[in-house]
């Protein structure tokens, strides 16, 4: 592989054409994010989340857009962004389902959940469904061993999940119904949570005093996966083969 090019001495603008991924409103948010920091380069992570909220994942054009905004090279953006697993470098489903397969969860049937999800989604762990709605991955410890087997959908926790529970969750999300996590938060799409992460603490010009705060899902409502109900012995019976 040879990369043919004309040397410009590092003039990025001349070397690479790219598509600016932000529309006007998104650009206003991007500017508001940059304005939060004394040095523009500090805004690299929230801007990458903003890219993810727009593009669904961190695209090449997105990284170039950010690089150009804050005066870094695309390579520097990639170097920072590639460290963080929540910034996705590959196309990603709307919902990321992470199943813990660490020791507690495995003991309590995590692999049954994994198998059930594989069959339901028609794909092995680590992949995205053909319709682009779900990405399914196995995860190391999610730090909720008392709720094993535990899964996360877009980083919201679900405890004591049976294979049937997992399949039911997928069914509900696929139908567009509301799903609430163990904490009672409405599960939102990758784009939604990326936007919320990106714009936390930022404020659009003209919206006096209205800093966006991370709302953590808003008002909690009853959930099938309430933390105060764990361990839900009823789920244990029959569903876990041990």
């Amino acid at each position: 592989m040879t990369r043919r090019y004309q040397a410009t001495g590092g003039d990025i603008d001349e070397q690479n054409g790219y598509r600016n991924v932000f529309d006007d409103e998104q650009q206003a948010w991007a500017d508001a994010i940059v304005a939060k920091y004394p040095n523009p380069r500090s805004a690299v992570l929230p801007l990458l989340f903003l890219v993810q909220s727009v593009e669904g994942y961190v695209t090449e054009d997105g990284m170039r857009t950010v690089a150009n905004m804050i005066g870094l090279t695309p390579a520097q953006i990639l170097a920072s962004g590639s460290f963080y697993t929540m910034l996705k470098k590959q196309p990603q489903g709307e919902y990321l389902i992470s199943v813990c397969r660490n020791i507690s969860c495995t003991h309590r049937g995590a692999y049954d959940v994994i198998q059930a999800l594989s069959e339901r989604l028609g794909t092995d762990a680590g992949n995205t469904t053909a319709d682009g709605r779900f990405t399914f991955e196995t995860a190391e410890c999610l730090a909720t061993c008392d709720g094993a087997p535990s899964i996360q959908i877009n980083y919201d926790d679900f405890y004591d999940v049976t294979p049937q529970d997992a399949v039911a969750l997928v069914d509900k999300l696929e139908r567009g119904e509301e799903v609430r996590s163990a904490a009672g938060e409405r599960v939102r799409t990758v784009r939604e949570i990326s936007f919320e992460t990106a714009t936390a603490g930022a404020r659009l010009p003209g919206t006096a005093g209205d800093h966006r705060a991370r709302t953590v899902g808003g008002e909690a409502q009853p959930s099938d996966f309430l933390p105060d109900s764990r361990p839900k012995l009823s789920h244990d019976e029959g569903s876990h083969s041990g």
Binding site: R3, G9, G10, Q15, N16, E60, M63, L72, T73, P74, A75, Q76, I77, L78, A79, S82, F83
Partner: peptide
């Protein structure tokens, strides 16, 4: 000219340029 960087930092750190740049 920061065109060469360590990316995928962590256990898989590698030295690379951005995409095909």
């Amino acid at each position: 000219d920061a065109f060469i960087q360590l990316i995928d930092r962590g256990a898989g750190t590698q030295v690379l340029t951005f995409k095909d740049d």
